[in-house]
Amino acid sequence: MTQYAIVTDLNRCVGCMGCTVACKVANGVEVGSYWEKLLRIGPTRKPNYVHTNDVEMYYLPIHCQHCLNAPCVSVCPTGASKKMDDGTVQIDKEQCIGCQACVPACPYGVRYLNETTNVVEKCTLCEQLVEQGGLPQCVEQCGGRARFFGDLDKGIETFEAPAIQYDMDRESADHSYESQQQGCRVTLGELAEPYADSDVYTLDDAGNGPAVRYILRNREWKDGVSFA
């Protein structure tokens, strides 16, 4: 069984919003809809707060969590929202009637009605790219190399992100980007700083089982982050 997901190392995330922009560009997301958005959590006082400098914060990218028991799939009257074999939740736009029952059903507020096509849309984990062996654009374009994509069933250490390596043959006549890029990948296990199991979090779970993971070290994870 496959469960594709994304893990974000929040200690690496710099809040550049490259993920948000990349998603908008890659998927043609409408103005006002945010398949991927970045929240800033904090600044909040550290447990040992004494001085005003004793504060901490982190950035939190939010998108469809591709839940194991997705409530949007349960409530959809047409079956347009489906849990696919690869573990992602996708919307069949030919079946969707735009009733928006799934919009309040989602605990994370990541579904939006496209007012042009009148169907509901959300993060697809760039299935059109993943099918061809690529990576979701938010992972591909992450400015801090904080996001990794893979199969949750194989462990988050195996999740991958781009690792650009170049053929540094400067004598070659062909200096194009395409000829130099080797298209390598790096895994979370190879790149990330050590973390404990207690450093791995999910968004609030109301029984829906969000698949997306977040790593946060040396800061207090704030529960109750959501989205109206």
Binding site: P77, T78, G79, Q95, I97, N118
Partner: peptide
Amino acid sequence: FMLRTSHWDRLFNSFAHLASPITQEL
């Protein structure tokens, strides 16, 4: 309910997913 939907031409799709509370309601 009909006014809530945006695709009236697909209204009968609403009866497709029997496990959905909305389908049961309809």
